[in-house]
Design a protein around this nucleic acid. Structure first.
Lengths: 220, 220
DNA sequence: TTGTCTATCCCCCAAATGGGTGACAGGCAA
DNA sequence: TTGCCTGTCACCCATTTGGGGGATAGACAA
């Protein structure tokens, strides 16, 4: 599971960085930024997710910098696919969005780090080294979002944005009820419960009822 | 969610008590005991758990006195099922067993109080009022067992009698893993995980993975 | 008025789950 | 030695669950 490439190298060759970014200006500034570090080299750049997926395997970079908003396939989807084929190459999202929803989607899809675009050069280099060392670098604002979402008690709602019916459904779910039992309890059709659950899963970023209950009970 | 009957009543009608006890002599003596209090009335009595489950919903009592050793389904299992359908009716175990295992099983399955049969009439009345007020009455010998178990184990084992492999499985279950993910985690066949889960369900008296997780996380 | 949100319900289909039963190897105790 | 417990794995079968559609109705805001 470890990136053996970065273990065996000893500052003989610069670490290869690939950048995926559709805006030419931003791409240029990043490329220059990366090249300014003697221990890093930009070995490839792509303006679309589709191009990146085709080109990256041959480049075998040490780390990938990925924008989220790309024309066509999003950077998140691109990350998910890259992780399927090249699970050991860390992907750092480098984007301007700090929305929770986008952030969680990125992390769920395999992003190893999440930096805001206004990150300063020294920080970027530290983040790159960090992620190559198995870390998960993220801007402090981003880290706050993540911690808040995981924290128990006080500040963080374990199930943010749920409607009242969805909250009722979740409450019964945490009692171990089946869909049918929940439906009977609320005098609804099982199909409605299923719909509520789908929405709950999506909002809580889980895939199964057990995961939802586990998250809700451990973080409340 | 509250029992409005006991809120709105102001000593106008006696509080309804249901007794579940298979031995006719004991049942009679309890019934007389309860009826001796002007503020309580025995509104129902059952000799088996099965009868109790069928009859209690219609009676809507304020409190249930439950023996543990019943023919067929045990009083513990009966309590667990009652708690699923009528979670707001307090159940007080009134039995002669002071074995830790039985005691913990009863408490884990939703018993609100635990009295030994040799409890004196005045104590019984105090315990009934206590449990109706949200308390958890128990004989002093029983309380000692409970306290001791907290010192030892750290809070009453939510999953008693699990083998080490079963505990590992349960731990991964509470992370929301699927059977396949658990199997991969432990380097086992999915079939083995399924076997462990069946044993866990049986020992914890639950029917689904979500119920197991809910119980484990709420009562630890 | 036109959206958007919430809540309700429906269908299809594949995968996961729960329950039953059975088997076999080791370890450990009576 | 003979059980009993634990741990492992297998097969069958019915039900539940997850994921993908889509539909309708009411409420409320732009």
């Amino acid at each position: 599971m470890k990136d053996t490439r970065s273990n065996t190298r000893d500052h003989q060759a610069p670490l290869g960085v690939v950048i995926v970014e559709d805006q030419p200006d931003t791409l240029d500034s990043w490329r220059r930024l990366v090249s300014a570090f003697p221990d890093f080299a930009c070995v490839g750049a792509f303006a679309t997710a589709e191009d990146a997926l085709r080109g990256i395997p041959a480049l075998a970079p040490d780390v990938i910098l990925m924008d989220i908003f790309l024309p066509g396939m999003s950077g998140i989807e691109c990350t998910a696919r890259l992780k399927r084929d090249l699970p050991d190459i860390p992907v750092v999202m480098l984007t301007s969005s700090d929305e929770d929803e986008i952030l969680f989607q990125a992390l769920e899809n395999g992003a190893d780090g999440y930096l805001l675009k206004r990150t300063r050069p020294a920080e970027l280099r530290a983040a790159l080294l960090d992620v190559l060392d198995g870390g998960a670098p993220m801007s402090s604002e981003i880290a706050r979002h993540v911690v808040r979402s995981f924290r128990r008690g006080g500040g963080g709602d374990p199930a943010p944005g749920l409607t009242s019916r969805e909250e009722e459904t979740l409450a019964l779910l945490t009692k171990g009820y089946t869909n049918k039992e929940i439906a009977d309890s609320m005098n609804l059709s099982v199909e409605t419960i299923r719909t509520h659950l789908k929405n709950i899963y999506s909002k809580m970023h889980v895939r199964t009822r057990t995961e939802a209950v586990a998250r809700y009970l451990s973080k409340s």
